[in-house]
């Protein structure tokens, strides 16, 4: 198991290095002169020269890359050109919205999807299965921004249970969670629908396995066999989807952040790209890559915990 973890850790580090080189190349090398790009076509040459000096663009490429990576390792992500604040501060403010929102949405979708998927699989072809599969069909089909607006219409405008948008900060945790509830539900709906379908089909695959028949021959009831033998085996594809969904939720919530006026990471990237603030784009993208790779690492470790065959294959 430790061997497996170390092996994964080595490949994680390699991925990070490759990703950082690619990002650096795309943002700082391919556009030619990043300073000119950031300032636009009408910029005066001396302004560009000043920015070049500020960004250290006159240094050789390798030195710049080393400085960028070295800074990030120490928590220095550079200074935003448009906000005139350290990128680290910008990200820190927003991560406290995006991360809890992603975890909240993921928790909701898992809480709904697991029981729904298990129930549907255990009553395959029955009325409950048909109803759940119909509901997931709908859940996948409904665009989440539209669903978000319906939620706002019902719960914020008509019932006035929640506010329609904005984020009050974590000074009052209850208010903060309340503010994130509608966005989390809107994000969770399609995710839960997909997850429930994966859970169901993965379980159904397992129910047809020989070892399920062996379990029944031992005297386990249908239900016991499902819980004790099928579920753990069915988890691998489900974990894969959860990992992918979490990565998506972290930065992909931009539309929902717009609908609910949430100051999240998605919005930050969007604004930085529109403002051509390459320093922010570069560092935030790297940060997101780091998170995605970490999430995959955790998913890999969970695989190994679930399935002994994967531990051996390190």
């Amino acid at each position: 198991m430790i061997r497996f973890a170390l092996g994964r850790l080595a490949s994680l580090t390699a991925s990070l290095i490759v990703a950082s080189i690619v990002i650096f190349a795309v943002v700082e090398v391919i556009p030619g002169d990043p300073a000119a790009f950031m300032l636009g076509v009408n910029a005066r040459p001396d302004t560009i020269a000043a920015l070049r000096a500020e960004m250290g663009l006159d240094e050789p490429m390798v030195t710049r890359y080393a400085a960028w990576v070295g800074g990030m390792v120490q928590g220095d992500f550079g200074m935003s050109w448009t906000y005139k604040t350290p990128v680290a501060t910008l990200v820190a403010d927003r991560i406290w919205v995006s991360l809890p929102l992603a975890i909240y949405a993921l928790a909701l979708s898992t809480l709904v999807a697991f029981p729904a998927g298990i129930y549907a699989a255990s009553r395959r072809g029955g009325a409950g299965d048909t109803a759940i599969m119909g509901a997931t069909q709908l859940g996948v089909a409904i665009p989440n921004f539209w669903f978000a607006m319906i939620l706002v219409l019902i719960f914020a405008i008509n019932l006035r249970w929640f506010s329609a948008g904005g984020f009050p900060g974590w000074a009052d945790p209850f208010a903060a969670i309340k503010a994130l509830t509608l966005p989390a539900i809107a994000l969770a709906l399609p995710q839960a629908a997909i997850l429930a379908r994966v859970m169901r089909s993965s379980l159904l695959d397992m129910l047809g396995e020989d070892f399920m028949r062996t379990a029944r021959a031992k005297g386990l009831t249908r239900r016991q066999a499902l819980w004790r033998h099928a579920l753990r085996n069915a988890l691998i594809p489900v974990l894969t989807i959860i990992g992918l969904q979490f990565s998506f939720l972290l930065a992909g919530a931009i539309i929902i952040e717009q609908v609910f006026f949430l100051p999240g990471l998605g919005r930050l990237i969007f604004q930085a790209i529109s403002a051509r603030d390459l320093i922010v784009v570069e560092s935030v993208v790297m940060l997101l890559v780091f998170t995605v790779i970490m999430v995959n690492f955790i998913v890999d470790l969970t695989y190994a915990a679930v399935d002994p065959r994967l531990r051996a294959r390190a």
């Binding site: 020989d210 028949r213 379990a215 021959a217 031992k218 033998h229 085996n233």
Partner: peptide, 15 residues
């Protein structure tokens, strides 16, 4: 009790 044909798949791989 019952014993089946295919020993490779008759056991739960994760236990």
């Amino acid at each position: 009790g019952m014993v089946f044909q295919e020993p490779m798949t008759a056991l739960n791989p994760v236990q």
